[in-house]
Write a protein that binds this DNA or RNA. Structure first.
Length: 478
RNA sequence: UCCCCGCUAGCUCAAUGGCAGAGCGUUCGGCUGUUAACCGAAAUGUUGGUGGUUCGAGUCCACCGCGGGGAGCCA
């Protein structure tokens, strides 16, 4: 079937005309490029402009002969300006680039006052660039970050699509306050200066959420998992990929108040399958990004972290280490290290413990399984030993926990006991429990923090620098 | 939220309680098919905020704000 559309604006850039395409093609005449000036070097008889349109890390070198152009026009071709150039794409006589654009026609689309334009060609700190979030996208580093980000997102969708998974959009607003994954942002249309109160009864004096938009308290989601389980028990294999919100006052290079999470949920899947699938998933998407964004990853390896490429190759080619929580505790106990937090069976692994296992002992991702039931969520399937649950955490060097998952408790009576045992109200989980009454099935899944994976892929140090617009306590600029 | 460190020119950083500095960027000039070019000159400051100690505070003290590192919570 052929598709026809009305003619597209003659200046719109489409595939084949990005700087990326031009640089990987052949010399030819009558080429038009649009982009933003990164730097400019002047001689008496020739002027070199580095032009970037975001399509690749490399700039296109535009060569301008000042004699052929109006001096006032060239004066406005400054760092940061947006220009359009038409000319001849020719092989370059100098080292540094194979092709360059000999300018025949130059138009300044948007000027940039060089006295105030904040980006220099020298390196800037990530902190400074974060303060100019509206311009940091023009920098080399953030160009590569966001190209890798789009490639990674596509790789994830492709992977699940090829594996036959259903993509489910779980709700962003939820009225279940039962997810237990941390502090939640409230969603309300009540007038905060004049909050309605309950006038009578046991709830007297409390906020009257009956008058609120949803008729009860509502929140931004902290996880789509419980809803994904609904879909897994109808579509077999499903995944979510969407924004997630945590109102925790976390101030670390690894936490955001708004982040993106991938949560596959698979029916007829036990913890072993879950674990191997997580490994297959990670390897597949990393390999794909390595293939698609080779030049961006080279940039990270050169400028940000010189171990990134080796680490990624190692992940793709190695077999992840699998150990039980009990074995992990034993390794830590006999390590001879002194720990800030003492190691004992029953307490959760601390950052220092995870780093020791991934960075010192195994030097690659480690999957730890079968955690004590007391330190894990109610929905994780109980093991027969009565002490542990079928939970797994994928720990990565430098990043720590990158994936957390489990086989879910599919037995109605056991789940009900666990809910009560943890002091939760079974009535809040009525639909979650009913899934175990009508055609229940063993199932498992995991959650992957998208930005944490970005940290791993890029070698970037702060999670605020791998998301377009970071939201953290006290900060929601841009 | 807790512990530690920091905040000085557009950026990165100096300055023993005693005249506010450099490099880069910017502007101007020179030179060169240049590559984070090179050479010369110039302009650029409410030292994060408020209060205090002192003859005198960028420097010492208190509180606040912001940033970084570590920790907790977690993905």
């Amino acid at each position: 079937m052929s598709i026809t559309v009305k003619e597209i604006s003659t200046s719109m850039i489409l595939r084949g005309n990005y700087i990326r395409d031009l640089l990987s093609g052949d010399a030819r005449s009558d080429v038009t490029v649009h982009g933003w000036v990164k730097t400019r070097r002047d001689s008496k008889d020739v002027c070199f402009v580095q032009l970037n349109d975001g399509s690749c890390p490399a700039d296109l070198q535009v060569v301008i002969s000042p004699a052929n152009f109006d001096a006032d026009l060239l004066r406005r071709v400054t760092t940061g300006a947006c220009i359009r150039v038409n000319g001849q794409l020719a092989s370059s006589p100098a080292a540094g680039q194979a092709l360059e654009l000999q300018a025949m026609e130059v138009k300044v689309i948007g000027e940039a006052d060089p006295a105030t334009y904040p980006l220099q060609k020298k390196g800037h700190t990530m902190e400074f660039l974060r303060d100019i979030g509206h311009l940091r996208t023009r920098s080399n580093t953030f160009g590569s970050v966001f190209r890798v980000r789009t490639s990674l997102a596509q790789a994830i969708h492709s992977f699940f699509h090829e594996e036959g998974f259903l993509y489910v959009h779980t709700p962003i607003i939820t009225a279940s306050d039962c997810e237990g994954a941390g502090a939640m942002f409230g969603v309300s249309t009540l007038d905060m200066l004049n909050v309605p109160r309950v006038n009578e009864g046991a709830q007297r004096g409390q906020v009257d959420f009956g008058q609120d938009f949803f008729g009860k308290p509502a929140y931004l989601t902290v996880s789509g998992q419980l809803e994904a389980e609904i879909f897994a028990l109808a579509f077999t294999n499903v995944y979510t990929f969407g924004p997630t919100f945590r109102a925790e006052n976390s101030n670390t290079p690894r936490h955001l108040a708004e982040f993106w999470m991938i949560e596959p949920e698979m029916a007829f899947c036990d913890l072993q399958d879950d674990m191997f699938f997580a490994e297959k998933f990670l390897k597949a998407i990393i390999a794909r990004v390595m293939d698609e964004c080779a030049s961006d990853l080279e940039f990270f390896n050169k400028r940000i972290d010189n171990s990134v490429l080796q680490t990624l190759e190692n992940v793709v080619n190695s077999v992840f280490e699998h150990i039980t929580y009990t074995e992990a505790i034993a390794l830590l106990e006999k390590s001879g290290q002194t720990w800030e937090f003492p190691v004992s069976w029953g307490s959760d692994l601390q950052s220092e413990h995870e780093r020791y296992l991934t960075e010192q002992v195994f030097k690659k991702p480690v999957i730890v399984v079968d955690y004590p039931r007391e330190i894990k969520a109610f929905y994780m399937r109980a093991n027969d030993d009565g002490k542990t649950v079928r939970a797994m955490d994928v720990l990565a060097p430098r990043i720590g926990e990158i994936i957390g998952g489990s086989q879910r408790e599919e037995r109605h009576d056991v789940l009900l006991n666990r809910i009560t045992e943890q002091g939760l109200d079974p009535a809040s989980y009525w639909w979650y429990l009913e899934l175990r009454k009508y055609g229940s099935a063993p199932h498992a899944g995991f959650g992957l923090g998208f930005e944490r994976l970005m940290l791993y892929l890029t070698g970037m140090k702060n999670i605020r620098d791998v998301i377009p617009f970071p939201r953290t306590p006290g900060t929601a600029e841009f």
